[in-house]
Simulated scan of single mutants.
Amino acid sequence: MKSFDNITRIQVLNDLLEQELHDLGLSDLTPSQRDVYFAAWMGSNAQGEVTSVAMRSHRGLARMPTATFHRCLKALVDLNFLSRPYGSKAKKFIVNVSSGKSGNRLSQ
Rank of each mutant, 00 (worst) to 15 (best):
21 L>E: 14
21 L>D: 09
22 H>N: 15
22 H>F: 12
23 D>W: 06
23 D>N: 15
23 D>I: 10
23 D>A: 13
24 L>V: 08
25 G>E: 00
25 G>K: 00
26 L>G: 04
26 L>K: 03
27 S>F: 04
27 S>D: 10
28 D>R: 15
28 D>F: 06
29 L>V: 12
30 T>I: 08
31 P>Y: 09
31 P>I: 10
31 P>T: 11
31 P>K: 13
31 P>N: 11
32 S>P: 05
32 S>Q: 09
32 S>D: 14
33 Q>C: 03
33 Q>W: 00
33 Q>G: 02
33 Q>S: 12
34 R>T: 03
35 D>R: 06
35 D>N: 12
35 D>H: 05
35 D>C: 05
36 V>R: 01
36 V>M: 02
36 V>G: 02
37 Y>E: 02
37 Y>L: 12
38 F>Y: 13
38 F>E: 07
38 F>I: 14
40 A>V: 02
40 A>Y: 01
41 W>R: 09
41 W>H: 11
42 M>W: 03
42 M>V: 04
42 M>C: 08
45 N>A: 07
45 N>W: 02
46 A>K: 14
47 Q>L: 13
48 G>K: 00
49 E>Q: 15
49 E>F: 07
50 V>L: 04
50 V>F: 01
51 T>W: 02
51 T>N: 04
52 S>F: 06
53 V>H: 06
53 V>P: 00
54 A>Y: 01
54 A>F: 03
54 A>G: 07
55 M>Q: 01
55 M>W: 00
55 M>I: 13
56 R>I: 04
56 R>E: 10
56 R>S: 15
56 R>T: 06
57 S>E: 12
58 H>I: 00
58 H>G: 01
59 R>A: 14
59 R>N: 12
59 R>L: 11
59 R>T: 12
59 R>F: 09
60 G>P: 01
60 G>F: 04
60 G>L: 09
61 L>V: 01
61 L>I: 01
63 R>I: 12
63 R>A: 14
63 R>F: 14
63 R>V: 09
63 R>M: 15
63 R>H: 09
65 P>W: 04
65 P>R: 08
65 P>K: 09
65 P>E: 08
66 T>R: 09
66 T>Q: 10
66 T>K: 10
67 A>N: 03
68 T>I: 11
68 T>S: 13
69 F>G: 01
69 F>H: 08
70 H>Y: 14
71 R>V: 06
71 R>F: 10
71 R>G: 07
72 C>A: 13
73 L>K: 05
74 K>M: 14
74 K>F: 06
74 K>Y: 05
75 A>H: 13
75 A>V: 06
75 A>W: 01
75 A>Y: 05
76 L>M: 06
76 L>H: 04
77 V>H: 03
77 V>N: 05
78 D>G: 07
78 D>W: 02
79 L>I: 05
81 F>M: 04
81 F>H: 05
81 F>T: 00
81 F>Q: 01
82 L>P: 00
83 S>H: 11
83 S>E: 12
84 R>E: 15
85 P>R: 06
85 P>L: 07
86 Y>E: 13
87 G>W: 10
87 G>Q: 04
87 G>T: 08
87 G>N: 06
87 G>Y: 11
88 S>P: 03
